[in-house]
């Protein structure tokens, strides 16, 4: 075709129609958004649009937090709650890893475990509180158990599906070199399931934080959950929001720690 002759009269540029679907996050925008919300909140109270009966101002919350920190109360509540969360989460995670692995590896465990987990997972743990009190008392055991129970199920499910999804070829490869069963589990199945286990941990850590409030409904005199509950009961809204803020900061920290763990452990992906 002679260049530019037939094309010339109807020449149309091809419009760009790709792009998009690549959202990026900006820390600065997040921080500014957060600041704007706080300012609007304070402003609405200062302007009298919101009654202080309904919502404490950010300044009041900050003051409540400062008092809590200065009196050492914050640390007292936080340390006991962290103790419960860490202990409950560790037990729940250990049990979940064990049961989830067994379900992924053994027919008997799978046949027993699947229907049981389906039946027990959706039960709200709070509904079991009176029973847990009867069985385990109102000491640390029942609180740790409440958290552990909440952590157990998602961990078991994540471990099970993680191992189940490990490439069969890798298992066959290990078998073809005569690697013993236990070593295949430790060196192939579990590392292969790690991405799924870690994303399960992201969920279970949030659940542990949620459940610390439930757990501390049972006869807890201290703990950040007990503190939030009692502030709610006493209608001390500044304390209530301060306690909730501490919980959400805790959530952010746990999320950041897990992201760091994922970065370190899953760099091979």
């Amino acid at each position: 075709m002679p260049e530019g002759q037939a094309l010339q009269p109807e020449r149309r540029p091809v419009a760009f129609r790709g792009g998009g679907f690549l959202p990026r996050t900006s820390r600065a925008v997040g921080a500014i958004g957060f600041a704007v919300v706080l300012l609007a909140w304070q402003g609405a109270l200062a302007a009298g649009w919101i009654s202080p009966v309904f919502l404490p101002s950010p300044v009041e919350v900050a003051l409540a937090l400062r008092d809590l920190a200065a009196s050492g109360e914050l640390w007292r509540h936080l340390s006991i709650s962290l103790y419960r969360i860490v202990l409950g989460w560790s037990f729940g995670t250990a049990a979940g890893l064990g049961v989830g692995s067994a379900m992924a590896l053994f027919s008997l465990a799978r046949s027993l475990g699947m229907p049981m987990i389906s039946a027990l997972f959706p039960i709200p743990k709070i509904a079991l509180l009176p029973l847990l009190i009867l069985w385990l008392g109102i000491g640390e055991t029942s609180k740790v158990a409440t958290i552990g129970l909440g952590v157990f199920f998602p961990t078991a499910i994540a471990t099970y599906s993680g191992i189940d999804n490990v490439s069969r070829t890798l298992i066959r490869m290990a078998q073809s070199f005569g690697i013993p069963f236990g070593a295949i589990v430790c060196k192939v199945a579990l590392p292969g399931a790690l991405p799924s286990i870690l994303s399960g941990m992201r969920i279970s850590a949030s659940i542990a934080l949620l459940l610390v409030v439930s757990a501390e409904m049972i006869g807890a005199e201290s703990g950040i959950g007990a503190f939030v509950l009692s502030a709610g009961n006493l209608m001390q809204t500044d304390q209530l929001v301060a306690g909730v803020a501490v919980l959400s900061v805790l959530g952010l920290l746990v999320g950041a720690a897990l992201s760091a763990a994922e970065k370190a452990l899953l760099s091979w992906r």
Binding site: L170, M173, S176, F177, I179, A183, K187, R269
Partner: peptide, 29 residues
């Protein structure tokens, strides 16, 4: 050490191990 040994179509490498550790994997036991 392993008289009958496979080579796989999709390589069957452990993605979390380095080249050296993949080659050393069957020797570990």
């Amino acid at each position: 050490l392993n008289p009958v040994t496979f080579v796989f179509q999709d390589f069957a490498l452990l993605p979390w191990r380095s080249v050296r550790d993949n080659v050393g994997f069957p020797l570990e036991h």
